[in-house]
Write a protein that binds this DNA or RNA. Sequence first.
DNA 1: TCTGGGGTCCTAGGACCC
DNA 2: TCTGGGGTCCTAGGACCC
Length: 415
Amino acid sequence: METAATILHADLDAFYASVEQLLDPSLRGKPIAVGGGVVLAASYEAKAFGVKGGMPGRRARELCPQLIFVGGHFKEYSRLGDAAMKVLDDFTPLVERISIDEAFADVVGCTHLFGSPAEIARKIRQRVKSELGLPISVGVARTKHLAKIASQVAKPDGLVVVDPDKELAFLHGLPVDLMWGVGPVTRQRLAERGVTTIGELANTSPHALDRLLGPAAGEKLLALAWNRDPREIRTHHRAQSAGAQSALGRKPATAHVYRPALAHLADRIGTRLRAKSLAGRTVTVRVRFADLRSVTRSLTLDAPIAATASLTEIAEELVRAALADHPQEKHISLVAISVSHLEKHPRLQLEFSLGARHEERRAGTRRGLARHSADRAVDRIRDRFGWASIAYGSVAFGPFRSVPDEFRELAEKEL
DNA sequence: TCTGGGGTCCTAGGACCC
DNA sequence: TCTGGGGTCCTAGGACCC
């Protein structure tokens, strides 16, 4: 017997822009963009002009002179995204939240209560519309990959159900870039071989795909093109890393530029880690030069750290080393820090391994403990009075604010 | 006015161990 | 003096996703 199509992929349409149009009826039916310097989200009316997320605001205005920029109601995005996803929870516990506006759900165990998967999908769409006032598209299929493609095809504000016996007929006529894992580079490489549809990809030799995309990617795409998707619904997974970045414009590659930026980033990351009693062993920095090329440097420690001052020091050292390797680069446009190899830390056994010799190790231990209690004091003050109520020395003036912190938080994954 | 921010996974080379 | 190979970890870079 064939497996039934019980996987749903639900995706709120042009989410931030739809929320703005919901909150301000005068914006409905008009091309709007959330953001300013950069477009964070565009309404469908704006997308019709070619306006897309991530696009510089100036470029967007060129494409669509009547474009209306609106500020973000971040609290509302968070509330409405959660509320929409909670509608899925009312049908099944098997929900995998992908982001603020997107989730998979498996309704295999609840059709006897609520009807067929297609009927459940209709109910979900109807409830999100009537209770929250937001359009949401849903794809229904036997696999996650196909359900996701179905919801993309359904947009805007639609429902597409893929019957198990019509899967390949549905899939093979679609362009390759609808597939999970095909971005601009892969799409271009495939196009150079004359492969533009998923059907053409499916009929390309494994050997050719190997050479073109590498063994793992080739095999994966071929499996997906034949609708063999091994991925299952994962109800809760935790992030493997925590990071933060800051675009700087075009700034001299000097310590007095990157030091306060790194301190701010380390502060954000350290706060998040400590809030979840986590610490990480690997610190990675990225430096992007003025021409947008970037380099990374990383360091893996013996023991995990979470103290802001330690993260800052290591990040500074790594950035110094990266810049020293590229002395001809005089300007930088972005710095980033990421902390990985995360571990739950039961006690204050942190940052002990800063020196090789015994004395140094003891000094390092004392310093680590002192840093940890300083961080805890700051964390507690922020819990009561808000994040901006206190900051580390040179960060106090918060000079790097290309994007509001509230927007950053929307993109953070659960640690 | 030269493009935001938070993530995941894969590859490839080298060090090191057995 | 020359010769094998597997496994794991670390580092750097890159593609991709939302």
